[in-house]
Nucleic acid binder design. Structure first.
Lengths: 228, 228
DNA sequence: CCCACTCCGATTGTCGACAATCTAGGCGAA
DNA sequence: TTCGCCTAGATTGTCGACAATCGGAGTGGG
């Protein structure tokens, strides 16, 4: 599972994880004001650790802080999402290219099995998109790991890129794109098996580009609805 | 100038900037332990703001924190630098491609003037590599701005990517690569003027790749020296 | 001689309280 | 009525002190 366990570390780390989870899942609405005292009480800790947690989340771009005016949950407008997907296309494409030469056969085989699980899950419960989405994230993260590039892993991994999960969570409710996505994943794995980095990159870029197109259309529809 | 002014914000922000500067310039050695009480005293503030600053720097990857064991300045080993340059190649290449279609004619003209300044500076004082390095960073950042992609700007800009400045600072002492770099910059601007995104991306990637090769050799030499 | 244990100093993690700053609402004058 | 000012409340920024934890010196046993 990608969700980090409660963690035995400092209270600030715990708070950061809990806050991140609340934000990603939408429990804390976008643009919502985050009151330090209130959150500290809810988490049963002082304001010190909580402030550190907010700093941490600011670095992850999950909240925006304004001096003397508090912190607010970031708002994911269309432009921001578009920018994110653009960067993802470049970074994950690169990850794929590297992974094609760096991953071991065992890792690739594991990736293939991961997809088998996904397929089974999809067949079992058509509606449960959530777990697929998490699994999908896991797929992408495994490839990032396969690149053997630590900076890339940080940028695409759990720590730095929770924004991704946030926008996924927001858009995964209606998303019925699981089947073509799965097929594209299979194509990517096939390219990795053949150690064809260029092809793997191309497929990954196309996969992400398609995902953005799909999400973009969904946003358009939502905006129409909310406007009507 | 790219170096942010002392900033009127919170003490934590001031501390973060000062610490970042000290780390980037090498005033604080790599791997050095950062004592909270000592630094707080030196900056004339309590430990609270300083801890927030350390959290911030951790997000920037300038320091590494270990629970109950304090923070240390990150160490830039060869692998880390290699990873950074790899990611840069992807991100700045993308920035260049976007900039070719997004930048205004005025911005491109300004970029060209910037290079004129560089050239003059180089001719005037051959040894002063530092200012060139800062200017070079400025060149790259201006292109990132030209991409109109906020996330890209954050990742390549001052806030998130001080690691870059750090490794530049470390390697810019002996670097005599200013002239070919300048010429490559000119080529990139020419591609931008022609609105040729693909070419601009290619040139930028090649430029960064060459920079890494040059730095890599330098590191090899240093290691030989220190081994002898 | 080497290893493990213990205790102590130092450092980090946390809290509560105080000061500085911003925001909202009421009040008075044009 | 409307605009601007001013006070009051709430919220953030900061500090100092206490508790928890870690690293290392010193000691005793094998």
């Amino acid at each position: 599972m990608l969700i980090q366990v409660p963690e035995q570390g400092t209270l600030a780390d715990v708070a950061a994880h809990r806050l991140a989870h609340s934000i990603v899942t939408g429990e804390l609405a976008q643009g919502q004001k985050l009151n330090e005292a209130e959150l500290a009480e809810r988490f049963g800790m002082g304001r010190g650790p909580l402030r550190e947690a907010l700093r941490h989340l600011e670095g992850m771009r999950l909240v925006k802080r304004i001096p003397n005016a508090g912190a607010r949950v970031v708002v994911l407008d269309r432009k921001t999402l578009s920018d994110i997907y653009g960067v993802r296309e470049a970074l994950e494409g690169m990850a794929c290219r590297l992974a094609a030469t760096q991953m071991t056969d065992e890792e690739i085989a594991k990736l293939s099995k991961l997809l088998d699980n996904h397929e089974e899950q999809i067949k079992k419960v058509g509606g449960k998109v959530y777990s697929q989405s998490e699994g999908d994230l896991d797929f992408h993260f495994q490839i990032a790991r396969g690149s053997r590039n630590q900076m890339l892993m940080d940028m695409l991994g759990s720590e730095q890129y929770q924004l991704l999960r946030m926008c996924r969570y927001r858009t995964s409710r209606k998303a019925a794109r699981t089947k073509p996505a799965l097929q594209q994943h299979r194509q990517i794995v096939a390219a990795l098996e053949q150690r064809d980095g260029e092809l793997a990159e191309l497929l990954m870029r196309r996969h992400i580009h398609g995902a953005w197109k799909s999400i973009s259309e969904m946003i358009d529809k939502e905006e129409e609805e909310s406007a009507a």
